[in-house]
């Protein structure tokens, strides 16, 4: 599904990703872990098309289509979804209208009819239930005054509504208490299928207790330096990241 080859990217002359390779197939969950400053969030930004990142070398394709040539909205319409580490509050834009606009623009791109208000409402109710998202929040301004946990749950609710091929969860666990973490993970687990894939970016192993990955990659200094199964996450939790750095140096 996703193929990243020799990706070099950075911000204002400073190279952050230095030759990253990653293959993600449909149905897989990949965890990307690594120390602070390794480039985890930069990878999420580059994938979703954040403006200030510049790709200097390499390629990213999604089902054979070159993502790097696309605007952020077209990437989303092709099926890329980024769950933000810090979801943005937008006062005056209602959560539900925002989602409706998003869904219909995606449908239009795919040559589908816009949903009727009734269809949309029914779908929204179903997905709210699925990911345990409070109905009261749906009609509020987008993320305005939401708690940290509510914001993250809203990200998962949007994910459920938009049904992307590839979801990138950028530090979704940060700032969540254990209950919120459980709810968010339950939501994600329900949304996993053989047709979609997840990249879970996290600093801690904790989230991976709930969302069990197929692969764990360690990102260090802009490259993936080690790949393993879910047990690698446990080892990292226990031993930290330094041993890997030493291993790669030697």
């Amino acid at each position: 599904m996703l193929s990243i080859k020799n990706l070099h990217a950075g911000v204002e002359e400073k190279e952050i990703l230095k030759g990253l390779n990653l293959e993600v197939k449909a149905g897989e969950v990949h965890a990307i872990m690594g120390p602070n400053g390794a480039g985890k969030s930069s990878l999420a930004s580059v994938l979703s098309g954040r403006q200030n990142y510049e790709v200097t070398e390499g390629s990213i394709s999604l089902d054979g289509k070159d993502l790097l040539d696309m605007s952020p909205e077209d990437r989303a319409r092709e099926g890329v979804f980024l769950a933000f580490q810090y979801p943005i509050e937008i006062p005056g834009v209602s959560n539900i209208n925002f989602l409706k606009t998003a869904m219909n623009e995606i449908r239009k791109y795919k040559g589908l009819e816009a949903m009727t208000a009734k269809e949309f409402l029914a779908l929204s109710k179903e997905k709210q239930k699925l990911v345990e998202f409070d109905a009261k929040l749906v009609n509020r301004s987008l993320n305005e005054g939401f708690s940290g946990g509510e914001k993250k749950r809203n990200e998962i609710f949007q994910l459920a509504m938009l049904e992307p091929k590839l979801s990138i969860l950028d530090e979704t666990d940060s700032g969540l208490d254990i209950d919120a973490l459980r709810i968010v993970s339950r939501g994600v687990n329900k949304l996993r299928s053989k047709d979609n894939a997840f990249i879970i970016i996290t600093h801690y192993q904790r989230l991976l207790d709930y969302i069990v990955p197929d692969f764990v990659h360690v990102l260090s200094d802009g490259k993936i330096v080690k790949t393993g199964g879910k047990e690698l996450a446990l080892e990292l939790e226990e031993r930290g990241y330094d041993w890997i750095k030493e291993e790669t140096v030697s």
Binding site: S71, E73, E105
Partner: peptide, 29 residues
């Protein structure tokens, strides 16, 4: 707010619609 604009775009909303939404939201008060 460029970050807000990007947030809307990252959900499949065109830059143009996103700006319209944000202007309407700004004017809403």
């Amino acid at each position: 707010n460029k970050e807000a604009l990007f947030y809307l775009q990252s959900r499949g909303i065109s830059a143009q619609s996103a700006k319209k939404m944000m202007v309407n939201a700004f004017a809403f008060d």
